[in-house]
Amino acid sequence: MNERKWKQLFAAVRNEAAPAPSADFEAGVLRAIRGERRPETPEMFSISAQLNLLFPRLAWAAVAIIALSVTADWGLTAAGMPGLNDGVSQISAQWFLTSNGF
C-alpha cells in the first residue's frame, strides 16, 4: 500500500463519527456506581504510627513481665532461697571480676 492510500485510509477513519451515548447511559453509570462503595485509599502508616498503635499492648506486656519478675524475686527471698540480686552478684563475682577484686 502506497503512502497516498495510507493517508487516505486514516483520513477517512478520522472522519467516521462515533456512536452517541444512549439516552439512559448517564443513568446506567450512576446506577452502577451507586451499587458499590468507592474503596477508600489505604492509609499509609509510618513505623512510628504503627508503634504508637502497638504501644498499649507492648506497654502492658512489659508491665506484666516486670511485675511477674518482682513478685517471683520477692517470693523466693521470703522463702529463704537466693533472690535475683544474689544470683546477679554471684555471676558478677564468677565471671566479670578477677580474683583480686578488679
Binding site: P19, S22, V29, A32, P39, E40, T41
Partner: peptide, 21 residues
C-alpha cells in the same frame, strides 16, 4: 456500538473507583 457503550460504562465506573487517586 453496544460494546462501545459497555466499555464506556466500564471506564466511568473505574474512574469512580479510582477517584481518590
Amino acid at each position: 456500538a453496544h460494546k462501545v457503550e459497555d466499555l464506556a460504562q466500564e471506564t466511568f465506573v473505574k474512574a469512580w473507583r479510582a477517584l481518590e487517586q
